[in-house]
Structure formats: structure tokens, C-alpha cells
Design a protein around this nucleic acid. Sequence first.
DNA 1: GATGTGTGGTATCGACTCGATACCACTGTA
DNA 2: TACAGTGGTATCGAGTCGATACCACACATC
Lengths: 208, 208
Amino acid sequence: MSIAPVVDTLERLCTLLRTEVRQRGLRHGLRPVQVEALLYLARCNRYSDTPIAVAEFLGSTKGTVSQTLKILEREGLLTKGPDPDDGRVVRLELTPVGRALSAELALPPALEEALADDREWTERLSVDLRRLLGGMQRAAGHKTFGTCHTCRFFRRESSGFRCGLTGEALSESDSELICREHKLGAAAEAPSGDSRPAEEGRLGSLDP
Amino acid sequence: MSIAPVVDTLERLCTLLRTEVRQRGLRHGLRPVQVEALLYLARCNRYSDTPIAVAEFLGSTKGTVSQTLKILEREGLLTKGPDPDDGRVVRLELTPVGRALSAELALPPALEEALADDREWTERLSVDLRRLLGGMQRAAGHKTFGTCHTCRFFRRESSGFRCGLTGEALSESDSELICREHKLGAAAEAPSGDSRPAEEGRLGSLDP
DNA sequence: GATGTGTGGTATCGACTCGATACCACTGTA
DNA sequence: TACAGTGGTATCGAGTCGATACCACACATC
């Protein structure tokens, strides 16, 4: 058996999904990239709300993203602010309008409808797709952009959660956001706390 | 359980796949849409090799596709010819160069690598993704663009295969191509031959 | 401190995308 | 013989996006 059917179906699925997003975004005067940037910014954590992070997430360049963000700012969907620690860095924050719009655009109706019937199947699909995504990201050498729960730097301590990379404490909701420093893979060098080896071999845990 | 994780993962997967295609296409001087049109034309059947069919497949407009095809023609990847039966229609055919390029671009290396290890898993993924695609296409009211084997008009006869829509006989290889008239769903009105009700409820058969 | 060197961000250019609109050629029907 | 419908092209304008150049700042090394 060849992998061609999977490739075909996935490509078709992508085209369909993009068509949906394009049409729904267009109703609000937004291009697909703009929608994707908006959705990312609504779901990223405090290490990841900068133009360069958006560019990495979208697989684009900082120049292109700079223009996209300029438009989103002009439309009143986000604001730019200085970083207190690094004078080069710009921090992006969605306005209430931007946040409301991202919530509205987040769920493609066709996908929602296709999944509505079967919870068990949705669950299995979720796990399989994550595994596929992880495999592709490793193969392509890209950043993984996952949430803290699946990250090799994630630490569970008696007092709560902590990022093993920055050392900062993380709230429950913090750890459900997308992080640009996210990395899958083997367990990191263990600091304090009850760290343990990755539980599912090369894949890391799958959180749902 | 919400469907949000599936949506997120799928969107991420799409971004990654598109990034890959963009980069590989760019090495040959092709934009993503141009690559997708090329791949479609390499795999569509004789009812489906026209500009309007490409537009429907890509979820784009005939105007936009017209420009894309003009570029592909200029680059020597396809030729346009008249339709013998309808003076309005243009038939598209890949040149040997175009066909060779499409073969080279068809398989994203990262995806190939991610699937390489596990045939059983690939099989399951293939079935699940098809089911998801079918569900979304029904929900979005789009054309399905499948191959004859999964089409409600497909007929198995003692002498071979036949299209119940056009009445034409189909060779084995014919029936593996993408068709713009493809439709999933309940069994069609039965002509001659051993037609039977669709075998898996509302989904139709899944061929692999 | 001065001097690189690297990084985050912006501006500009040119080829292309893509929705919208207008238009032409042809088909099929009344 | 009209005329509506369909397939296809041309054109316009806002936007995408890679490439390049450039600026501001951070950090390391002398």
C-alpha cells in the first residue's frame, strides 16, 4: 500500500479548509493569512506574541508578516506595544474587537458538522492527526508550536506547573496556550521537581 | 470533549503542508496554486480537464484560474486545445515536462517520512481522513472530486466498468482518476447491470 | 568604552494572487 | 431568431510574499 491516498486526501482537505476560511474571513474583509495570524495571536502565550513568532508559525518571513500585522493594526484588531526588557521587540495584543472576531472565526462550520455525530471517532482522529503533525514537524525540522502540556520543558511540581526553559511558574490556563519555544522529544535535563522520562517514546504525551 | 483540538491540529497540518509545497514549488518557480493545478491536471479524467473544473477543484473562480493556466502554458507545462463537441470549452493537457514535474512534486517528503514506518496506521488514517473529507464536502455543499470507485454513478458490469452518468465504458485506469462529476451518497436510479445499494450507508464505499 | 555580530522589525520592489466586473463566443431552448 | 445560460478571457485594485536593504538594539569580545 502506498501513502498516495493519504497525501491526496490531506491535500484536498487542506484546500477545502482554506476555502472555508477564505470565504468566512472575506465576509469580514480579511485575507486567509490575516485570519490565521489572528487565530494564532488569540491562542499564543506570553513568550510568543511577537511578529517573529507569527512568522515562524505561519512558515512565512518577517517582512511579509510585518505587512499583515500593519493591516490588522489599521483595522483595529490588534495593538503594538514595546517590550519592557528588549527594546527591539514589539508585543502584539488583540483588541476586544480582534478577540471577538477570532472567537467567531475559530470553528469552521463544515468541520464542526462533519465531526458532530461521533465523539469516539473525533477522539481517535485527534490523536492520529497530532501524531501525524508531530512526525511531519520533526521531518521538516520545523518548530512544533504545541502547548506546554506536550513540551519537553514542562515541569509538574508540588506547587503547580513550571517552564523548565525560562524557570517561570505557569498557571493552568498558561499551559494551554501555544508556545514558540515548544519542543517535543526526549526528557530534558532534570531540574528539581518530579520530572520523569517522556511517556510515549519519541512522541511525547498527547494531551486531550 | 470539544472538537477544538482536531480543528487546531488540522489547521496546523494544513499550514505545514502548504509551506512544504510552497518551498518545493518555488524551487521550480511555481506558486502554490500553480502546483495544485498541475497536480490536479495530472490526476483528473477526461470529463475534468477544463479550466472550470480546475476552478471548482481549487475552490477558486474561473477568472483567477484563467490567469494561473496562462502562466502554466507560458512555462510550457500544459497546452490548450479545442473541445471537439463544444466550441466554448478548452481542454487542458500536460506536456511531458509538466507531467514529469507533477510526478516530482506529488509527494511531500516530510509527510512521506512521517508515514514511512507504520503501514497499518497509514491505512487507518487514510480511511479516517476520507471519511472526514466526505463529511466536510457534504456539509459545505461542495463537489466531491473523488475517483469513480467511490461514485454513486459507478457501475460494475460483467464486461467491466461503466459511468452511469455519461453511459461510457471505463477502463480500470480510467476509474482511478479524479472526476468533477463525482458524487457520494445513496444509490442512483438503477440502469442495467448489477447495481446495488450503497454498501456503507451514507458514506459510500472507501476504495483502498 | 569601542567594535563587531546577531537579531527583531520596517520599508520598498516586483511578480503574482484573487475577487469583481465586464465582455465575447458558443450552446441550447423557446 | 431571440435570448438566457455557460465557458473562457481581459482588466483593475488591494493584497501576498520573497528578496533586499536598512535601522535600532542586545550581547559578546577585545
